[in-house]
Design a binder for these strands. Structure first.
Length: 811
RNA sequence: GCCGGGGUGGCGGAAUGGCAGACGCAGCCGGCUUAAACCCGGCGGCCGCAAGGCAUGUGGGUUCGAAUCCCGCCCCCGGCACCA
């Protein structure tokens, strides 16, 4: 059979065969070492786009490589299927969210199979299945028992477009991460997960190989800073509490010339004088109306209003005015600061604008502290204007001031984090119902575990009221109290979908377990994930939440080890052919289905991997597809066309090409360098082609070359290699065949080319036997007419020899 | 402003201290073909007749030797940003 390469015929054939044979099913009782490869599961938006292919096809290649290397590979796939688009489809077009979602899943599952990815479909997880979200609810109850899930009133981020609150992580530049609406602040009672309990541990990335980019982003998001809480007195009649401030510079406390509270600070109401009240009220109202965007657009102009009240510095008894200003955030620290204009830029700007005093409390070699300051400065030498602390060197200042504060009972050293608890309540229908019941008598009562899942009701009205559609389903909301059966009401909020994706990797290990989220044996067998791949857009949401979730589960004794994913690789962003982000409005979208129907899935996979380094992303090059198609055709022809064999033909050159390809390709795929890997595979097919055209080939060397080429190409182009493997008379399946090993003896060259430089410029090239040593190379160099001509009898000062590569004559 | 990534032919990119431009696209020349496509072979940084010189954003430095290491600057992409 010498017919031509027809991707469509062979791709559908093998796709069906693999599914039928469950070729990629991971077996729990396989004794070989396990490898858990995971790529982020998609939201079932309805269509698999090129971004999905770009994320998943290389992940698949890496998983296939591990399988061929002899690992028992778990490579599962599922759908993150709760979320707003389904509900928006319901509102806009009157379609049931469930029908919409499951139709999309059906379609996308087929598209994923077209890709030829070796997913274990027996383990598919769909987060909107009651079988799955039963366990999301179970996890919620466990977190509740541990005190890690709690309900609190707080200023929440309200997205007017999505009609729901958002976690801080989902607010980007004051806008909703999903809908881009400007986020409002609302005071609401909501459910939170206490991720801050793990703030310190989440800063530690020991034992995991994650990109620095992601570690830095998480570290910045958590935002640890060391400092102190200091208590100032409040000099207002009838107010008998102190004013706590967080500061990273307690050593500047003698320079605190005023205090600033966030406009929303609880104390403002009680300390404001009658005279100042109108101005304060006005400012607070203004601030509350301002969106985050407007706050940013004020160009850091330091606005604020005096409350009329004074605080007392506990260190020196000095009275300082208390202001309110929106540059102090109620959500950070204590929502109040001691302002030290001499040593803080923002305080300096505020003091200058409002005519407040500036008192330096450190001296500095470059600053005349007797004169009015031009700007705030840090990095002082010793303390000044600081009573008993005068003369204290900067290095000891913080510690001494904190010790003093502790001794006198008005402060202590502390660590503050920017990270806020994770707000998980959503006022939406299409999510996991929070399994709680509100009873007038017993308060908030968990749904008993035996009653899980709390299933979503059907036939719900979708009017965007700002209230969850669930509130209107009376027969669902009204339930007996689990304690005594009296009438009570269900919690109508559903969970943030990031909750569903925080533990999905655990469910894959035992996806059909009706008794538990997964068995201990399965967890011990498969967890944690060895290699996780996905987009960097999840750096501070999914990837932080899932680490928190894992650590909480570990502390409950449910999983073992400190981290859920040992290695993480983030692919870059694939751009349109014009170098811009793919978008419908730009008209630069590359549709995978179209590419597949033109070139086949193998070619599309390879082209995506060939365009550049995977972690860097970059523009998709549609014309470059030609090169991939030519290469696959050549591989096809080399395997199926008749070859003229002869015994006794020198096999060294062909074998060298084969073993060099094995060595290079292995090294590349090991490091996710698919672009250079494919280059090496192309070189190998070219070498095979030349060998065949040059005359009869050595039978064994040829067979070795074909076998290696097919196995090395199998991870990136699974269909064509399977077909050719069969046509080459090999045993099904190439994807279970062992990865070829390079023999270092065979990769060695017979001859080497040594470059001769004079003062670093190439002047000649010497071809020498591979065995040539330094002495031999130098001898050949001096024997070169070209070189001796250029030297004109001059004596080299030095000759540098790089073994097997280069000689550099220094004159 | 801070943090991270990046800047190399017409294009995507390769080379992480040792021959800059692997591999591929596009282009050009040639072969095959009645012809075209496919396929095959070859040529492709700039200046120069040549010898040679100049070339990896830019200016310095280290080195026998720098795309690669160090310092300054410019530009692009991503993230964070009044965090006390």
């Amino acid at each position: 059979m010498t017919d031509r390469y027809d991707p469509h015929r062979i791709e559908s054939k093998w796709r069906e065969r693999w599914l039928q044979d469950k070729l990629y099913a991971a077996k729990d009782d396989d004794p070989r070492p396990k490898w858990y490869a995971l790529t982020m599961f998609p939201y079932p938006s309805g269509d698999l786009h090129t971004g999905h292919w770009y994320a998943m096809a290389p992940s698949d290649a890496a998983a296939r490589y591990r399988r061929m290397k002899g690992y028992n590979v778990l490579f599962p796939m599922g759908f993150d299927s709760f979320g707003l688009p389904a509900e928006n489809a319901a509102i806009k077009r009157g379609i049931d969210p469930m029908e919409w979602t499951y139709a999309n899943i059906e379609h996308m599952r087929g598209q994923l199979q077209v890709m030829g990815a070796g997913f274990d479909w027996d383990r598919e997880v769909v987060t909107s299945d009651p079988d799955y979200y039963k366990w999301s609810q179970w996890w919620f109850l466990q977190l509740y028992k541990q005190g890690l899930a709690y309900r609190a009133e707080a200023a929440a981020n309200w997205c007017p477009g999505c009609h729901t609150v958002l976690a801080n992580e989902q607010v980007v530049d004051g806008r909703c991460e999903r809908s881009d609406d400007i986020v409002e602040r609302r005071f609401l009672t909501q459910w939170f997960f206490r991720i801050t309990a793990y703030a310190e541990e989440l800063l530690n990335f020991d034992g995991i190989e994650w990109p620095e980019r992601i570690r830095t982003m998480q570290t910045n998001w958590i935002g640890r800073s060391e400092g102190a809480i200091l208590s100032f007195g409040v000099d207002v009649r009838g107010v008998d509490e102190s004013l706590s401030v967080f500061t990273t510079r307690p050593d500047t406390v003698y320079g605190a010339t005023f205090m600033v509270l966030a406009p929303e600070h609880a104390l403002v109401e009680r300390i404001t004088t009658a005279e100042q009240r109108p101005a304060v009220e006005d400012y607070r109202l203004q601030a509350s109306r301002q969106t985050e965007i407007e706050r940013l657009s004020t160009e850091r102009e330091k606005t604020g209003v005096f409350t009329g009240a004074y605080a007392v510095n506990p260190f020196n008894g000095e009275r300082v005015p208390i202001w309110i200003a929106d540059y102090v955030l109620v959500t950070y620290g204590t929502g109040a600061i001691m302002a030290v204009p001499a040593h803080d830029e923002r305080d300096f700007a505020f003091a200058r604008k409002h005519g407040l005093p500036v008192v330096p409390v450190f001296d500095h070699p470059d600053v005349d502290i007797a004169a009015p300051l031009e700007a705030a400065f840090s990095g002082g030498r010793t303390m000044v204007n600081s009573g008993p602390f005068n003369g204290t060197p900067a290095a000891e200042a913080v510690r001494k001031v904190i010790d003093y504060a502790v001794e006198h009972g008005f402060g202590e050293g502390t660590v503050n984090y920017r990270l806020r608890d994770w707000l998980i309540s959503r006022q939406r229908y299409w999510g996991t119902p929070i399994p709680m019941i509100h009873c007038d008598e017993h308060g908030i009562v968990p749904v008993p575990e035996d009653d899980l899942p709390v299933e979503l009701p059907k036939n719900v009205k979708f009017d965007p009221t700002g209230q969850s559609p669930l509130t209107q389903v009376e027969e669902w909301v009204n339930v007996p109290c689990p304690v005594d059966g009296r009438p009570a009401r269900r919690e109508t909020d559903t969970m943030d979908t990031f909750m569903c994706s925080s533990w999905y990797q655990m469910r894959y290990v035992d996806p059909h377990n009706p008794e538990r989220p997964f068995s201990m044996e399965a967890a011990r067998k498969w967890l944690p994930v060895d290699q996780y791949t996905g987009g960097p857009e999840h750096a501070v949401m999914h990837l932080l939440y899932t680490r928190f979730f894992w650590k909480a589960a570990r502390d409950m004794g449910i999983v073992f080890g400190d981290e859920p994913m040992l290695r993480l690789f983030n692919q870059g962003v694939l751009l349109g052919p014009d170098g811009n982000r793919m978008s419908k409005s730009r008209g630069n979208v590359v549709a995978p289905d179209e590419q597949v129907s033109r070139w086949g899935a193998d070619a599309f996979r390879c082209q995506l991997m060939f365009v550049g380094p995977w972690d860097q992303g970059g523009p998709y090059n549609p014309t470059g597809m030609q090169g991939i198609v030519r290469w696959l055709n050549r591989l096809w022809n080399l395997t199926v066309e008749p070859v003229e064999f002869a015994d006794g033909v020198d096999s060294r050159e062909l074998r060298r090409a084969t073993h060099k390809a094995i060595e290079a390709a292995t090294n590349d795929i090991e490091n996710f360098r698919f672009n250079t890997m494919i280059s090496r595979l192309m070189e190998h097919t070219t070498a095979m082609h030349r060998a065949r055209e040059a005359g009869p080939v050595n039978t064994e060397a040829w067979n070795e070359a074909v076998s290696a080429a097919l196995r090395l190409t199998a991870p990136v182009a699974p269909y064509i290699t399977e077909e050719l493997w069969e046509r080459a008379g090999q045993r099904y399946s190439v994807h279970l065949a062992p990865w070829p090993e390079a023999d270092p003896e065979l990769t060695r060259d017979d001859e080497i080319e040594v470059v001769v430089q004079i003062n670093g410029k190439v002047r000649d090239r010497l071809t020498l036997p591979a065995s040539a040593d330094e002495a031999a190379a130098k001898q050949a160099m001096f024997a070169s007419e070209r070189i001796s001509g250029l030297l004109e009898g001059k004596e080299p000062r030095r000759v540098i020899y790089v073994p097997g590569k280069l000689l550099n004559i220094v004159l």
